[in-house]
Design a protein around this nucleic acid. Sequence first.
DNA 1: AGCCTTTGACCAGCG
DNA 2: TCGCTGGTCAAAGGC
Length: 397
Amino acid sequence: MATTDGAARVSTPRRPTITLPPRSAAETLFADGLSPGPLTMVSNFFSENADFSSFSQLLAGAMASPSFSADNSSSENVGGEKFGFRQNRPVSLVVAHSPVFIVPPGLSPSGFLNSPVFLSPLQSPFGMTHQQALAQVTAQAALSQCYMSVQIEHQASSLAASTESLTRHQSFDSNTTIQPVHTMISEPESSTMESSEVSQSDRKSLPISAAMDKPINDGYNWRKYGQKQVKTSEYLRSYYNCSHLNCPVKKKVERNFDGKITEIVYKGQHNHEIPQSNKRAKDRIDMKPNTTNQAKPELRFQGETEMSMTNESSHSLPGRDQASTQLTPPLQVLGSCCTCGNGYTEVGTSKLTVSYRTVTEPKIVVQTRSEVDLLDDGYKWRKYGQKVVKGSAHPRW
DNA sequence: AGCCTTTGACCAGCG
DNA sequence: TCGCTGGTCAAAGGC
């Protein structure tokens, strides 16, 4: 990142560097605008091991964590669900990558380059827990939705060369869905105007495909093998294969009418490391700070300003012991966060999915074989209702 | 030349 | 058995 950072800064006045605090200081982190709501949910997959540096590693660590293993069994007991993307990941498989994962789903590389949610190498081994690390990634996924449409136009031309080099390692090796269905983050003032200026017609005139056909430059190479308009989502769904030889990983990407990614589902696990021999990989490597930074990564926003990070979500993470949802899966939960009063969380363990939605954040759905940890997302949720949802045998609060 | 996207057709699962 | 739906295939074309 260091090498092309300069180019990126041409259009981005500054990139505030955020050093991730220890988990106990998560509030500091999120005070900068990265609301952790959906993040801690994801983060709870992870143990406290700090030996992973990439998203893949984080996930691998999460999957290998005792809790996950236990949850696996428990989840299977829950109903022997036919989880849509039950992975066949070898237990021993550890995807070791460089400690950089950057581009979130839903943001073109160029968009992400200037995105305030841009991340550089993880802090994980140095004061950042896996929860936080993954939370950051998820935050990128969430927040990027807000900036994508705005930034595409402004950055496509000037940053095309440098963007891909910034992309790295968002390796969702688990069955992970990031589903920012509702982009509700209050747009920063700096981008609100731009957003409004980017009219619908402008957006339509945009080569959306160019900006979004590669929604996630996660370090892997993807080959699109199909695209459909699925009825259940109304959105256009694209199917991608990892282009690596014999790699079984696939992903589905759903986009709304604006071309914004609304859902990403990863299936399977890479049986290889992130390719580094191709140009993109090379660029990404070039973008990596350096080996020193790899060893001592820091969280860095590539965004324009802190202002871009300014949203109304001051959703800070309370202590995990404050998690109040007492759930007996499978069920779904709707409620508002006691911390910020925003949004709700819903847990559908019958499908082993968890989705969070707050007023200020996109919806994020994580599919996993584990549900127990998801119930303790570190937030306090206030139950404000309960009912049986049509089509569901389970109560909803 | 190689890899990618596009897109209609095909297939399998399900009710 | 049939129709619907989601997922995949594969040919064609583009970069």
